[in-house]
Design a protein around this nucleic acid. Structure first.
Ligand SMILES: [Mn+2]
Ligand SMILES: [Mn+2]
Ligand SMILES: [Mn+2]
Ligand SMILES: [Mn+2]
Lengths: 218, 218
DNA sequence: TAAAAAATTTAGATTAATCTAAATACAGCT
DNA sequence: AGCTGTATTTAGATTAATCTAAATTTTTTA
């Protein structure tokens, strides 16, 4: 059962929006991510439900079925492997790859993606620190905390981002807040919740907004 | 002006079908290659004509405009570069890559394709011996002759194929008729126009059908 | 050169994915 | 329990790409 480009995007979106296991994903949330209207989402949810890819009940939102989740994870695996390829092999910057991967993630061949995985030597993380599902769809995510949840004196490795916009990624790169660097909290300004951090022996201030979107492994 | 997947396939097909410069490509020829009905082709030709990508007059077939040709060549460049990538980097066989490249050729980013070209060290030919257009759209094709046009005693390098089916490519590989090998004609059987050839000091018989589709550089 | 055959176009439908506007259901609060 | 605003669904249209069947044009052939 081959899915359309659009169906794959819906499944991926539902997967990403399904934060807690007991809460369903709402029609509006999906429409916002995909830049469509809620009415269009309803139509598609019915279609995905007919195909047994989502559990859908009118007015109650959706969750993915086992099958739907498997499809979503495959798309995510492809997306992240292609991002690694673009950065590692074609020298793209980490802020340039997402858009291209949005297209590449829909290329079908399973053999292609497994060969690519091998060629890249089975990377565990994509350029943004996100984990790459293995060929069996197993995705192991590490527990990460945003800088905004840390206390003065806490220290850890910059390991991920919560926001993938080009602007944010460029900002991080410019200011040396790069994946793998060790970061410690030296001061928290109560007035605006901005945070003074130390990275590579250099002190710098980051806003609350940035602190919320920068993830640390303790 | 971004083209759809479908529009790109039409342009590519018209390019491939446009053998002599004074003859137009027919509606039926296009429909056959694309596995659609002639009526659908007519619709699309009108649309491409409105976009100034083809020169179309009712009942007279089409040719590509300069702009249309440029787009077609870009798609062909992408197709062939991806085929090289699949064979050289991911260890695919030459009969496995065409189908995947049919999908990859529609990925947009110009930067991606130029980086890929660089990564592959600017290959001049794809795995089937077809020339790869450079980034300016310049395509230089070598003069090749099918084995069926050669005479006894003629000798040359196997340099291309006229037929890209999986069956034909697998057959050539199995029988050692591989790109780059030197081939000479030792006998032509007049009865059925089959040809006895010598490759790597080994004699073998090939049918007229094969001889017509195997291309040699003298 | 006129009929017959082949190629091509038109007319009218269909399917997937989308939209707007209107109707309906739910959730939170008095 | 009833009101009210938000979320969601339904109804009806639109667009791109396709189809079938019928009409028209071009080409071939006798
Ligand atoms: Mn991404
Ligand atoms: Mn990523
Ligand atoms: Mn090919
Ligand atoms: Mn090829």
């Amino acid at each position: 059962m081959k899915l359309s480009f659009t169906e794959e995007n819906y499944l991926k979106t539902i997967f990403h929006l399904n934060h807690s296991p007991d809460e369903n994903v709402s029609t509006n949330a999906i429409s916002e991510v995909l830049n469509t209207k809620a009415a269009s989402v309803t139509d598609m949810l019915k279609k995905l439900s007919d195909k047994k890819l989502v559990n859908y009940e009118k007015y109650q939102g959706v969750t993915l079925t086992k099958d739907g989740e498997k499809q979503a994870i495959t798309v995510i695996r492809k997306h992240r492997l292609w991002e690694v390829f673009l950065v590692e092999k074609l020298n793209f910057k980490w802020d340039e790859v997402h858009e291209i991967a949005e297209e590449l993630e829909h290329i079908c061949s399973e053999k292609l993606i497994n060969r690519l995985d091998e060629f890249l030597e089975f990377p565990k993380k994509d350029p943004h620190g996100d984990p790459i599902p293995d060929k069996n769809g197993v995705l192991k995510s590490q527990e990460l905390l945003p800088v905004s949840k840390l206390k003065v004196g806490d220290k850890g490795i910059i390991s991920g981002v919560r926001e993938h916009s080009v602007e944010f990624l460029k900002y991080l790169e410019k200011t040396g807040l790069i994946l793998g660097e060790c970061l410690s909290i030296t001061e928290i300004i109560t007035f605006d919740s901005s945070v003074m951090v130390r990275v590579k022996n250099h002190q710098q201030m980051i806003s609350r907004e940035v602190a919320k979107n920068l993830l640390i492994a303790l």
